[in-house]
Design a protein around this nucleic acid. Sequence first.
DNA 1: TTTATTTGGTTTATTTTATAAACTACTTTA
DNA 2: TAAAGTAGTTTATAAAATAAACCAAATAAA
Lengths: 95, 95
Amino acid sequence: MFKELDPILHSQLRLAIVSLLISLDEAEFSFLKEKTNATSGNISVQLEKLKEAGYIDIKKSFRNKYPLTTCKITKKGIQAFETYVKDLKTYLDPK
Amino acid sequence: MFKELDPILHSQLRLAIVSLLISLDEAEFSFLKEKTNATSGNISVQLEKLKEAGYIDIKKSFRNKYPLTTCKITKKGIQAFETYVKDLKTYLDPK
DNA sequence: TTTATTTGGTTTATTTTATAAACTACTTTA
DNA sequence: TAAAGTAGTTTATAAAATAAACCAAATAAA
């Protein structure tokens, strides 16, 4: 009947981040912040969780002397997203 | 870009309950429990929240001397579900 | 018949989350 | 050189989800 929903993805902010990364392949911290309207702290925490889950890779570097955090979705992340969307549909189409 | 997701519906169990009620119009506590595989306590709490939100009506009666809790979706609940599904799609279709 | 078990839940407690507030480290500007 | 800005991280708090414990009445078993 209803499939279990991946708790990592069943979170508004993490889902938004993954959704962005799937279409963009790579994105910077500030870009994610702007697109999601979330606070830096919240994004920082959720990126860490996505990384722990193996759904994204995080690269830390510098640009013009400032720290730069770049995120990239992993194969596992793409797979998880696709599964999540499929599972979610068992809830959305009541007929 | 991303729409805010109704926190009442962005919950696996409450979404499952509402999804069931939309297709069935009316359902008993035990039926919801069986279909969702949730514990009684969890269902009890989530039904209360859905009721507080005005998304369902709860009718308490007796059948064969045993208590019987029956739930029915409200117009507001249907509307909220439809909005939720629409909003969710801003996350699910990254292109 | 009185003890145990089942039905149909509710209430309370615990764990987990999401989020915001506070902080860090460094850079640029006034 | 003091203040403000950039780019985040860490810590604290509030809210949620969930499970465990409980309750009242009915039925079954000893």
